[in-house]
Write a protein that binds this DNA or RNA. Sequence first.
DNA 1: GACCAATGTTGGCAGCGCCAACGGTAACCT
DNA 2: AGGTTACCGTTGGCGCTGCCAACATTGGTC
Lengths: 149, 149
Amino acid sequence: MDSRSAPRALRGLPSWLVSQASLTAAGLVSGQLSRTGAHRWHYSVLAALHESGPASQAELGRRVGLDRSDVTAAVGALASAGQVVRETDPADRRRNTVRISDRGTERLQDLDRLVHSAQDQLLAPLSPAEREELVRLLTVVVDHHGAVG
Amino acid sequence: MDSRSAPRALRGLPSWLVSQASLTAAGLVSGQLSRTGAHRWHYSVLAALHESGPASQAELGRRVGLDRSDVTAAVGALASAGQVVRETDPADRRRNTVRISDRGTERLQDLDRLVHSAQDQLLAPLSPAEREELVRLLTVVVDHHGAVG
DNA sequence: GACCAATGTTGGCAGCGCCAACGGTAACCT
DNA sequence: AGGTTACCGTTGGCGCTGCCAACATTGGTC
């Protein structure tokens, strides 16, 4: 589609713009990650583990905004690939403690490069100052609804 | 989820922010529209027809960024509800000319109110100037990829 | 001990964007 | 005229996402 031909009623709509932007963003990120056969939650989960340390699956889901059921699948896949270790927490046998492995850390660095290059593609038409401002505004919006709604 | 607890690696990612924002935006819009049993493409299609006049389904799809197959379903539903009239173009019998009906125009006004109130909810934490700037930045990004990619 | 809450897992659902294929129609071109 | 190419609408399907319901297990609470 040539988005510039879209109705002004849509083009002026923040929800429509953000949805279109999200679509192209997802395409760019997936495009980059697919070069190594990775998916988006791959990166999210590894990044969360690397940054905030081991966690239960439920906790992990809260961090990155994934449903428990989806975390189960994600962690399962990562564990099969040896990028993550899953063992039941002896202190609370309901929990599975998940921690990132060395291989997972290496993997994360690869994905990091790919994801960031996708960001450059996405924000290509914006100046550095504009990119910063966009991130700021989106953060305000997301935080507001993450906390309130 | 409390998005403020998300890993900084994700929180700083434009693609992640835009995806989260899109998700809440879609939720807000759907929430509003669901009060009248409408969907998002309902509004898109009616708005496009109202603004740019009758069009074939393919043309309609190009305008609002919908696949031909999805336009078929959307127009079908709108036609059953009497909000749109679909008749084969005598000048080119491949085409279905779709035009908005009076009932469709009324309907559009209702949806317009609902959609705009959802925008207010979405942008609640932003000042008018910030809202304008966000729309501008998103428009630049969307236009760039709509034209290039 | 009885009750409630949290966890992980499985299975399913709906929306969205996308693609493939088909039959019907139109335009082009030699 | 015929053949090729391209467009159109329709149907059916696929994959990804986010979500919810159920269940069994385990922990905490009264």
